[in-house]
Design a protein around this nucleic acid. Sequence first.
RNA 1: UGGGAGGUCGUCUAACGGUAGGACGGCGGACUCUGGAUCCGCUGGUGGAGGUUCGAGUCCUCCCCUCCCAGCCA
Length: 542
Amino acid sequence: MSYTIFRTFQLHPFLLYPTSILKLQNRFFHSTTIKATQSQQTQTQTKHSTSTQSKKLNNLPKDYEPIIGIETHVQLSTNTKAFCNCPYNYGSFPNTSICPVCMGLPGALPVLNSKVIEFAVKLGLALNCELAFDSKFDRKQYFYPDLPKGYQISQFDVPIASSGFLDVDIPLEYGGGHKRFGITRVHMEEDAGKLLHTENGNYSQVDLNRAGVPLLEIVSEPDMRNGIEAAEYAAELQRLVRYLGVSNGNMQEGSLRCDVNVSVRPIGQSKFGTKVEVKNLNSFASMSRAIDFEIARQVQLHSQGQADQIVQETRSWEEGSQRTITMRKKEGLADYRYFPEPDLPSVILYQEYVDGIKNSLPELPEGKRRRYEKMGLGMQDVLFLANDKNIAEFFDATLAKGADAKLVANWIMSDIAGFMKNEKLTINDIKLTPEELAELIASIKDGTISGKIGKEILFELLAEGGSVKEIIEKKDLVQITDPVEIEKMVDKAIADNPKQVEQYRGGKTKLQGFFAGQVMKASKGKANPGLLNKILLEKLNS
RNA sequence: UGGGAGGUCGUCUAACGGUAGGACGGCGGACUCUGGAUCCGCUGGUGGAGGUUCGAGUCCUCCCCUCCCAGCCA
C-alpha cells in the first residue's frame, strides 16, 4: 500500500524501502505544464476531424475554431472523509457528520485516508496517466465561509497523475467516430462545505458535512471542439469512475461536477483566444448546450469586430434563459499562496503497490467496446452494452455460457430492457440469470422452442425465475415442427375463412399474416413460424 | 430548461405481437326530394430514423412534437 506517515514521526519513507523500487517522474512545475499543453494542443486539434456537429453551430461563420477544456471534480465514495473519520452521506441533516478536523478547529491535525491514494492511482491508471511516485499535498489559501480552515488541502506542482488520455466513441446520432481526448493532470484535494441560503436572502448558513470529502480533480487538454464532444467526454469519465467504483458519479448530487473553459480563435491563428470559464452545469445535456451557446456568443463577438469584449471571466449557465451570464470577472490571478502542506507527509508510491492496483483494475468501458466491436456488434449495440457496467457483466456472463454475441445483445436490448424499464428494475434485480438466458437461446437454436415461445418463457424467467427446461416441460411448450400437423391446421384456417382467401387471391397478400395468426392461435403459439408460413403460402397460392 | 403525461384518418376513439376498425366531418348517391331528417357508398391514419421478430401501431434505442406542473441552486 502507499506509505504515508506524519512528519512528526521523523521517519522518511525512503529509509524504509530500497530506492530502486521508487521512481521519480513528472516533477514539472505549473508554468511548464502550460507550455506542454500548448504544443500538444496544435497536434490534437489538427488530428481530430470535424465529424461531430451541433445544430446551434451550423449558422455561425465557419472561420473560427472553438477550443474547449474541461475540469472535473469527482467525489470519491470512500466510507470516510479524506483527512478524518467522519462518514459522508449525501442529503443527511446539516452538520451531523463533522469533527474538529473537518471543522478546521485549531490544533486538529489531518490524517490521510489511504483509500484516497488508492482511488487516485486507480483513476490515474485508467486514464493512461503517468503517476508521480513522489508527490505531496499543498495548501491553497482563500477565504470563503464554506472553507473553515481558510485553505484547501490540494496538490499544486506535483499532481499524482498526469499526461494521460481518454478514448470516447461518439454515438451515431451525434455523428459517430472515435475520439481521444488528452488528460493534463489528476490531483487529489478536499471538498468545501455547502452554503445554505435562506429564502429571503437575509442570511446564509453553513453545512460542513461536505467539508473534507475527498475529491479528484481531472483536468483535460483543450481537445474538444463542441458541446457534444465535451458532454461525451464527461459521460465517459462518469462511466469510468463507476466502472472503477471510485465514485457514484451522480451529477445531481454533485458527485461529478464539471467546469468548462471555452475560447475561440480565428482559424490559422496559433495564439489561443481569451478563455472563459463556464460553471453551473447540472447535466451532460446542459453542458453541451452551455458550451454551444458560449461558442456562438464568442464567435459572434469576434465576427463583429468586438473580440475585445471577450474577457477572462467566469460565466454561469442559466437553465431558465438558456444562456450564460457573467458571474465574476477574473480578479487578477488569484493569489492562492500555495505552499506544501506541513501537516501531511509526502505521498510515496512504490511499484508493487501500483502494480497491485493495475492488476486489479476491471476491464474498462473502452476495452469492452473494442472487444464487443471485434465480435461483430454494431456501434449501437456496443454502446448499449458497455455504457452500463452491470449490463456489460451480464452480457459477458451469458457469453461465457456459450451463447452467440449478437443474439444475446438482441435479447438484452429489446425484451429484457423493456421489462426492466416497465418494472423500473436494474439488470441486477431481475430473476433471470445469464445461465438461463444462454439456455433459452440454445433451446431456440436447437429447435426445441420457437422464438415466439422463447419470448413467453423469457418473461416468466424475468419475473419469476426458474429454469428454461422446467418451464418448457411444465407448460408443454415444445414447438410443432411436424409438417403434417401444421398442414392440417393451415387447411382448417383456410377452410374457415373463405372470404379472406378470396381477398388474398384478389391481391390482398397482407392477409397472410391473418392466416398465420389463426394457425398460431389454434396451435397456442407452438407452430414453427417458418414452416407454417411456407406451407401457408403454398396453399394460398395454389 | 427540469419533472410528469402523451402522440393512430381533418376530429374523437378501438385493435393478447397476427386483416389498422368504428363514430363524427368531408365527398358522392339514394330516399316521389324545399331536409339542420334518414339510409347507402366513398374518402382518409399509426410523428421520424434505426433495431428486434416469420410477422411491429404494439417491444428496444435515438430524435421530433404536444399537453400539465415547476422554474434559476456555488
